[in-house]
Design a protein around this nucleic acid. Structure first.
Lengths: 218, 218
DNA sequence: TAGTAAATAGTAACCTTTCGCAAGTCAATC
DNA sequence: GATTGACTTGCGAAAGGTTACTATTTACTA
């Protein structure tokens, strides 16, 4: 099986080299598409796989579900930010990782992958800035993957009723105002809280947050 | 936010602890389902996420696309077999990985993940046994993720024609025998080669492999 | 240069994971 | 003891990322 250097393949390789970051297949696709608008995403995937089989690039399978690719072949490790998911290179001399005295259970070792995990300087700064704000709001759940922009009709109804209310109100009141059942209201409130659009300043009383108001008016 | 120990959650935790392996969500699902047939896959996913947030289990995001989970919390690393995809634990003293003198680019380090890659003893044995065979066949592509069992009707037709042939035959002959167009035959042969069902002992001549014969008779 | 093998675009399908909802369960309050 | 809200669950649907299939095109080699 021989490799042919097609235009597409060449372009994929070039763009990956040009960007010093660790691109995912679809990021690379977006870039290549600007130059070759008719290229297919499948081609990008195929070539990344082929190029990494041929040891012309490296495949990274760390952190999260997307594969990322690296044009640098020399041995190096990676450092990963738990908050912004940035991956950067790390130069570690061989001295720092010493496997010679480890019981490797009879495995024939072909390589190793070291991933250091932490918080990058940018995120550290960002966090210390927003700390006061976040401590008050339910900031801890906000980092999750929920799509914040999308509201169902019922959620919108609940949120609107809550906006009209002065101050915190009970779910009963919302139920009366919207005509929905109490249980349904309760469900919606839970979902809205998760999105950060509603909070509960007093037990069993709820209020719309600033973010909630913004979301409603989009 | 408090955690409740529901039956489902307890069972998931117990099964994960019972099996010493690193299970994926759906493997765990299969096991728990034998005891609680009505449990939902989503529940398994949800609980694995929750339990790992609560540091009651560990989430592994290495090697391949499925997340795997580990009931052992103590710091340990992993060793991964490139051939059978087995993951095993590795006990490495802190001495072996020394990050104190590494430039970590201002990151606040919270952890590290070391994955040693190699070939497990079982696969080593297996390979040395099958070496003669594999060297002849195109064994290198067999490790890929293609589903080997599924054949399209056309593929089956081509394979059958090839089986009837004595020795290697050209794609022209196959085309004549099947009534398919030469171009189509060529496509099918490519796909079949990828699956390991066909090989090309001589340039432009093809033959069905042992694996191909087996696949045909399933 | 002709003919073959490898690569491509486009799309469908796949697998894993997450989400929304309605309903259920439990613990804390009234 | 009834009620309320928080936490869960099962189910179905859908998202997200990746791979497979096939007709067609392109690069390479004899």
């Amino acid at each position: 099986m021989q490799l042919r250097m097609t235009n597409q393949r060449e372009m994929i390789l070039r763009e990956l080299k040009k960007s010093k970051k660790h691109l995912s297949a679809d990021e690379l696709y977006e870039r290549v598409k600007k130059i070759m608008p008719r290229i297919s995403l499948a081609t990008v995937y195929r070539n990344l796989e082929i190029l990494s089989d041929a040891s012309m690039i490296r495949k990274l399978e760390i952190s999260g579900r997307q594969k990322r690719f690296d044009s640098e072949l020399e041995d190096h490790d990676h450092i990963y930010c738990i908050q912004c998911h940035r991956i950067e290179n790390l130069d570690i001399g061989d001295k720092e990782v010493n496997l010679t005295e480890v019981d490797t259970r009879g495995y024939a070792i072909t390589g190793r992958r070291l991933e250091v995990i932490g918080l990058c300087p940018r995120c550290q700064k960002k966090n210390s800035k927003n700390n006061a704000k976040k401590a008050k709001q339910g900031g801890s759940t906000m980092g999750c993957g929920c799509k914040k922009g999308v509201l169902s009709d019922e959620q919108k109804q609940v949120l609107e009723a809550m906006e009209k209310c002065d101050g915190p109100c009970a779910s009963k009141d919302i139920a009366a105002a919207t005509g929905l059942e109490t249980k349904q209201v309760s469900c919606r409130i839970t979902a809205l809280k998760k999105k950060g659009y509603v909070d509960s300043p007093v037990r069993c009383k709820y209020a719309i947050t600033t973010e909630g108001k913004i979301a409603l008016n989009v």
